[in-house]
Amino acid sequence: MVQPLLQVRSLDVRYGAVQAVDGINFEVEQGEIIALLGANGAGKSSTLNAIAGLVPTFGGEVQFDGQNITNLRPEMLPGLGITLSPEGRRVFGTLSVAENLQMGAFGMKDPHEIAAAWDRVYTLFPILAERRDQFAGTLSGGQQQMLAVGRALMSNPKMLLLDEPSLGLAPKIIEQIFELITTLNQQGVTILVVEQNVSMALEVANRAYVLANGRIATSGAAKDLAASTNLQNAYLGGA
């Protein structure tokens, strides 16, 4: 049996006395799109941040590509082939678009690989090429999201962690973002996406895990979950 690309075992994240993630297990196979769903405060972002090393894990283990990356410092991950595009985009607003992308390729040494990464990102997002000398802070929300994803792609990752890529964007832009997720996946990038936009996420994902109160409440194939009528009411706070 082939080992999953990302394997999370009994992951435990605590902020002081608050238990944000309570012993969850899940895995992502090479080439999949996996959605992590749940209401506000269910522990979705904490899970991603713990995988990326931004918050310490209290217990459990994270395996990526056969390596134990539990509590590894965040700066080590791009070199291993996994990057996080954080919640709220967090582009460097005082840097130009090109400088943001250059930072995404910070750890890369091979000039050919770097040139290929620029090509790929500018082909995916022609608007970023057009605005390369503009401060990232002056871009629209949708363009900033593209920059955040482009920046995460610059290190040529095997796996991309996306935290709420549709947050605060217009419906039309959200559609583009989900199309992009499919495109990237077709290019061979494995994707773990945290989303509040359940219907869109289930449309593109292969499988999904639904978190509630730091635990996995339910999981399964995306189309089965999309068909289940009580998913919204039970775990996602109505809406």
């Binding site: 700066e75 005082t94 840097l95 400088e99 910070f106």
Partner: peptide, 24 residues
Amino acid sequence: QKYGIAMRAAAEDFAVARLMGIRA
């Protein structure tokens, strides 16, 4: 300079700079 730009990036958002592989 690449390292100079990295310092500006870290000054703006240290955590995200680390996500880029910039060593703290």
